[in-house]
Design a protein around this nucleic acid. Structure first.
Length: 427
RNA sequence: GGAGAGGUGGCAGAGUGGUAAUGCAGCGGAUUGCUAAUCCGUCAUCGUCUAAUAGCGAUGCCCGAGUUCGAGUCUCGGUCUCUCCGCCA
């Protein structure tokens, strides 16, 4: 959640940054400040009442000890009355606190200054693109996959439903190879590798901002109060929930491969053809936790990491600075990576690299001590490096020669072959 | 899933119902040829006051209810960890 102390001190700035997003108003910030003020005044009143009650209770103890039974009994009756007062003030305090939290937690992060104005994806700002040529009109990846018998959506439907693909032979190996390749590259770039749970509890989902915003996006195991992760960001970042670390531990750089589960309710048509949008897909994620002064550099660092991966895979790509309207709930700034799909003649998102500022830190209750022993809120960042099926669809369309799919050199050793050919698996 | 034991600050670790010891680490200071040692202070959160400190108040002993004038301590429910049993890749 956004930083309340900062907003108190920089109210006007907060309003303008908040209002950059569509469907927001500066009244929401004013309301937040008002709720905070009434919470604090409620606490003041409660504190006063409790001071009195505490003193009285102590006095009773003393009177009993010194044998003054009568006056003790008298005072005891009085403190009972005090109790009623504090009880009602306590109730008021709780209500003020709940009202504050209810409003606070549903406010999105403040957009960074560098975020362009805008309502939707049309207003995103292109940062740069690779100089690799974008091939024209080839076959789509689902046509290629069908020709080579690499993908069986129908079997996935039988097992689970639409959006749960079954990959066959070389395509399965390709995905496994990509996971290894991406993890190796992340390791080389200094990210420590983790294997984490694929189901998380409510606290974890709230801390990274999936709740309450994206409740409908996640699969939920209601019987156990667990959510299937929509991204490895959730378990990886939550490793540092409720933690007090030291500046010397920073920067923290984590990576992990997990499947990602997304309900994607309401998607349809060409959006969901082939591998475009899935309920389950594999992804390698990178996460950084850094001192506030370093977060912009860390963001660039992650962008360069993703860029290098796409270059090694010989992919034509472009980088977009998402406008305020397209920015996710928890993000302060996001760069999207899109690769060119010659089969579909459009750009497809393969990575999102975001800086969250202190938004997640506040929910995580994560702090670090600096050299002077001050407690500081670090910034968190994460990015896909990379989402596997979208890369696979790109590789299929880019490498297709009408007969086989040629794989980029860097993958030959990882996949154990230099091309994908027709699979003769029978089902 | 069953039985038992336990959960106290960054860490370790005390605490007959009367309002959270002590040690270590950290931070500030004092002393000191250097290093080390020693001494004093500080060292959870929120609020209040302030330019900022100091000060003052409240909260805080896994979470939530309850008993009581007063709960780390007593009662109930939950949760997590450990040990044993059962089941199991």
């Amino acid at each position: 959640m956004i930083d309340l102390q900062w907003i108190r001190a920089n109210t006007e700035l907060a309003k303008s940054r908040h209002s950059k997003r569509p469907n927001t108003s500066s009244e929401e910030i004013e309301h937040l400040i008002a709720l905070d003020a009434s919470r604090r005044s409620a606490q003041g009143k409660l504190d006063e009442a409790k001071t009195e009650a505490n003193a009285a209770a102590q006095e009773v103890g003393k009177l009993f000890k010194t044998g003054q039974k009568d006056s003790a009994e008298l005072l005891r009756e009085k403190t009972k009355e005090l109790k009623a007062t504090t009880a009602s003030l306590e109730q008021a305090m709780r209500e003020a606190n709940d009202a504050l939290n209810a409003h606070w937690i549903q406010l999105p992060n403040l957009a960074f200054d560098e975020v362009p104005e805008g309502k939707n994806e049309e207003d995103n700002q292109e940062i740069r693109r690779s100089d690799r040529p974008c091939k024209e009109a080839s076959a789509t990846h689902w046509e290629i996959a069908e020709r080579l018998n690499l993908l069986r959506m129908d079997l996935g439907v039988k097992l689970s439903g639409s959006g749960f693909p079954v990959y066959v032979g070389g395509m399965a190996k390709l995905q496994r190879g990509l996971v290894s390749y991406f993890l190796d590259e992340a390791n080389k770039a200094g990210y420590a590798e983790f294997q984490v749970p694929h189901l998380v509890n409510e606290d974890s989902a709230r801390a990274t901002g999936q709740l309450p915003d994206k409740e409908a996006q996640m699969y939920e195991a209601t019987l156990d109060g667990l959510f299937l992760i929509p991204t490895a960001e959730v378990p990886l970042t939550n490793l540092y929930r409720d933690a007090l670390i030291h500046e010397n531990d920073l920067p923290i750089k984590l990576t992990g491969y997990t499947p990602c589960f997304r309900r994607e309710a309401g998607s349809y048509g060409k959006e969901v053809r082939g591998l475009n949008r899935l309920h389950q897909f594999d992804k390698v994620e990178v996460v950084q936790i850094v001192p506030p002064r370093d977060s912009k550099a860390a963001h660039q660092d992650m962008v360069h990491h993703v860029e290098a991966l796409l270059d090694a895979l010989e992919m034509p790509f472009r980088i977009l600075n998402l406008c305020a309207g397209d920015l996710g709930f928890a993000a302060g700034i996001t760069y999207d990576f899109e690769i060119w799909s010659p089969g579909q003649s459009r750009w497809l998102e393969v990575s999102s690299v975001s800086n969250f500022g202190t938004f997640q830190t506040n929910r995580l209750r994560l702090r670090y001590r600096d050299q002077d022993n001050n407690k500081i809120k670090p910034h968190t960042l994460n990015g896909s490096a990379l989402a596997i099926p979208r890369i696979v669809s790109g590789l299929l369309e880019q490498g297709w020669d009408g007969e086989v799919v040629h794989l980029p050199k860097v993958l030959h050793a990882y996949v154990g072959m230099d091309r994908l050919t027709k699979q003769d698996v029978r089902l």
